[in-house]
Amino acid sequence: MFDAAETVIRVRGLVNRFAGQVVHDGLEMEVGAREIFGIVGGSGTGKSVLLRTILGLHPPTAGRVELYGREVGAMSRAERSDVVQRFGVTFQNGALIGSLTVAENVQLPLREYRRLARAALDEQSRLCLAMAGLPPDAAGKYPSQLSGGMTKRAALARALALEPELLFLDEPTAGLDPISAAAFDELLLYLHSQLDLTVVMITHDLDTLFRTCGRVGVILDGKMASGTLDRIVENPHPWIQAYFHGPRARASREGRNG
């Protein structure tokens, strides 16, 4: 499915334990350049912990996590700052800074990593808002004034600010109405095709999964079963069968095939 030479993320033998509870137990995961990889799993299977581990926000109990061939936990400050500029993240609830406007939120990473004049910052934030499909008048709004869908888009705009090669999305369509969610899917596909992005997303939204993801990784009993959607769907594990063949899944698959 992907060229091993272009592996962007490599997770080997990841173990995460919290107070005696094992969340990940020898989890393996690989994501190649320019693919859209979906992570699914039941509640409490450690999807967000996995994401936080890959981002280097959570030191794992054991195992190795590499981004662009460099181990996440063992990077120097300079390496870390270099890698951080190569990925963008959106968090589940947007995680926009409440005291800054949408435009200022988008400018935040630019202010940190680029030395730009005020007008240039405004210009770049207009670009990011437009890329995320936000109207120009959203720039001056505060996060508390945004609807759920706009918050997700504003978070995406901020994630795109440094022109990442790799995008992490934590439940990008959760809490959106089906029309907004579908619009977000199309936006993501469009950006993916235009910007050569690699996308890793956690999602529960079957429509999103079938519409956008090339490969899927399912977290089961602390390990990951990954493969193309067509192959994963045939996996006999009871959870996968229940997930992909339940009443809600049927419509999504038909939507994809039709």
Binding site: L127, L129, A130, P136
Partner: peptide, 21 residues
């Protein structure tokens, strides 16, 4: 580069200025 076309499409959306406060 490929994205120049993409950017030109975006430009028309972003051009409509921000209404004065």
């Amino acid at each position: 580069p490929r994205h120049v076309v993409f950017l030109e499409a975006l430009r028309d959306r972003a051009r409509t200025g921000i209404p004065a406060d």
